[in-house]
Amino acid sequence: MSKDRAEWPLYEVFIRSKSGLSHRHAGSVHAADDQMALDNARDTYTRRMEGVSLWVVRSDRIIASDPTETSAFFEPAEDKIYRHPTFYDVPEGVENL
């Protein structure tokens, strides 16, 4: 019995649906090793030609921002509205700006 064995690690799966687009998170799979993670990701998430490229990465290797710190973490960007083009008034008559 493999009952006592630790569970296979979890991998996050990212798919590029066609060239020209970024990889996008699709879900996750368990696998014993990296190659099996790729094979399982293909079988689980691309049965209908959903992708031309796959990334898998061990879930425990992902560094994520802390959701309880969301406001503090992203706050520095909040008051810098001058970073958006809409902050500026374009004078009447000026074009192509």
Binding site: M1, S2, A32
Partner: peptide, 19 residues
């Protein structure tokens, strides 16, 4: 589940050996 336990074990042993 039981009949295929050896497959899970073998995959795990292979991964351990590779790492």
């Amino acid at each position: 589940h039981d009949d295929n336990a050896w497959v899970r074990d073998a995959a795990r042993a292979y991964a351990d050996k590779q790492s």
